[in-house]
Amino acid sequence: MAKLGPSGYSPYPVAVTEGVLTPPPGKALMFNEIVDEETAMREAAKAMLTRENPTIFPGPQVLYAWNEEAKKKAKLIKEMAEVLGAKIIPMYDYRPKYPKIDPEKEINPNHPNLTIWHNKIKACIFIGVHCHYANVALKIIRAETDCFTIAMCSLAGHEDAMITLRDQHAEDLEKFIRIAKEVKKELGK
């Protein structure tokens, strides 16, 4: 068990208690630094392409076809997984599962570390997860695992992710896929 200190009892992300806040519009957060979105995307792609068992965790906002944007994003996520050579494990809802989840097939925000431990995931992307549950999951992953977390958020981002990309809509996903292809080429993969 990680020693979180007082931030473990805080309802806010651990990074917030250390003074790290979400990036301003048009920028991204990489660890505790505000950087250009493209720089962060490049590093995110590199992490996914070089670390073991990269995985994308799509949430309900992209898993369900509840609007046109969600349908577009679902296609792009599949393409993204192919480019990054990543697995897709869904976080389809937020109900706690009893008696336990099947970590090969699903991730639950209440104990996301189980899926990460079981599959030995060293890099992951959260996308389409509602912010409050992304915050809970990212806080647990940050405390309990050595997984490199990337949050692709359609709102303001998540401080507890190693890389936070904010305001991510379909066109931003297309941009990320383009950058990932470039990085893949540079890495000779």
């Binding site: 799509p58 992209v62 898993l63 369900y64 076809a65 509840w66 969600a70 349908k71 679902a74 296609k75 996520i77 599949k78 897709i88 494990i89 869904p90 389809y92 099947d102 097939k105 699903e106």
Partner: peptide, 12 residues
């Protein structure tokens, strides 16, 4: 409740 076709194969 309608699952996106592209991601259906990953759903339990």
């Amino acid at each position: 409740f309608k699952i996106n076709e592209e991601l259906k194969e990953y759903m339990p």
